[in-house]
């Protein structure tokens, strides 16, 4: 376990309102470099909203989001979405995969290196003239892409359209594409969704590799508890847009607030007595059944 780093990302008092709906309310947390920070919570807890605020797809109603990068601090809440990726080097993936389906796998990875290649091609002018400098830069870009293709076991399919890949491969490609931008912080929105057991184990390997070898911070939203508990160093739990717990996976797992958020209130506290009485028969069995899997997680 690497020594604790200074925070890479600081989120302070983040609030996001959509009209009257408060999707995220006063959430603060930090994510360290070389650490995997997981944001978990029930459906509708505001996880993806937090992500969209960090990556510039929403501008938060209130709050400050600072990325402490190698080249100084960036106030993400004030930056345009594409600049967050370009200057602050925050890369992300999407809950519903967003590849460029009718472009080849390799092209997907080259588009991710657009800004570096654009400079090398002299804003296209040198590239049109076929300058040697650009050809060299392009070869380097292909080598970089090749590196991530090997890491994600996609090198064999590099020349076919990304849209024709199987689901698990598309997920891996999206991570490879995000990594090709050479990010300081990698944000993954439910990377294990829809993966089978073996694929999800490979994903754990990949994420650990990214954390340990590339020394970048990873922020992930995840429902799959096996992924969260196994690989994350730090867990932030959201419920109804509020942060209800934060800490190591072990601490979070035993936090009563978290258990309540995932399993609901204890019976009898919130329900009127007659309903409780009706439920008494199979209600106890149901609750025990529900709690079973949660405890094994």
């Amino acid at each position: 376990m690497p020594a604790p780093d200074r925070p890479l990302l600081t989120v302070e008092h983040l609030t996001m309102r959509f009209g009257g709906l408060v999707a995220v309310h006063d959430v603060s947390f930090t994510a360290a470099g070389r650490r995997i920070t997981a944001i978990i919570g029930p459906n509708g807890a505001g996880k993806t909203t937090v992500f969209n605020c960090i990556t510039g797809f929403y501008s938060p109603t209130v709050g400050r989001i600072v990325l402490h990068g190698g080249r100084g601090d960036f106030l993400l809440e004030r930056m345009e979405g594409y600049l967050i990726a370009q200057k602050a080097r925050v890369a992300r993936t999407f809950q519903n995969i967003r590849l460029f389906p009718r472009m080849s796998v390799l092209e997907n990875l080259l588009v991710a290196q657009h800004n570096a290649l654009m400079r090398a091609s002299g804003m296209s002018v040198l590239g049109l003239l076929g300058a040697a400098g650009f050809r060299h830069a392009e070869r380097e870009a292909v080598d970089h892409a090749r590196y991530w293709l090997d890491r994600t076991a996609l090198a064999d399919v590099a020349d076919i359209d990304a849209g024709t890949l199987p689901y698990g491969a598309q997920r891996r490609l999206e991570i490879a594409r995000a990594m090709c931008t050479r990010p300081a912080l990698l944000c993954l929105d439910e990377p294990a969704a829809g993966l089978n057991h073996a694929e999800s184990r490979d994903l754990n390997h990949l994420l650990r590799f990214i954390r340990d070898e590339h020394e970048i911070g990873v922020l992930l939203i995840e429902h799959d508890m096996s992924v969260v508990m196994e690989i994350s160093d730090h867990v932030v739990v959201l419920d109804y847009g509020r942060k209800i717990a934060e800490g190591s996976p072990e601490a979070v797992r035993h936090s009563p607030d978290v258990i309540r958020a995932y399993l609901g209130e204890e019976e009898g506290e919130a329900l009127p007595p007659e309903v409780t009485a009706d439920l008494k028969g199979e209600g106890g069995a149901g609750a025990a059944h529900e709690r079973g899997p949660a405890e094994t997680q």
């Binding site: 797809f57 200057k87 590849l99 080259l110 588009v111 657009h114 931008t181």
Partner: peptide, 19 residues
């Protein structure tokens, strides 16, 4: 390539730092 990528998915392009 960025043009074609924009045709395919503009949101993904933004997340990759393309203006």
């Amino acid at each position: 390539r960025a043009w074609e990528a924009l045709r395919e998915d503009e949101i993904a392009c933004r997340s990759l730092g393309i203006n």
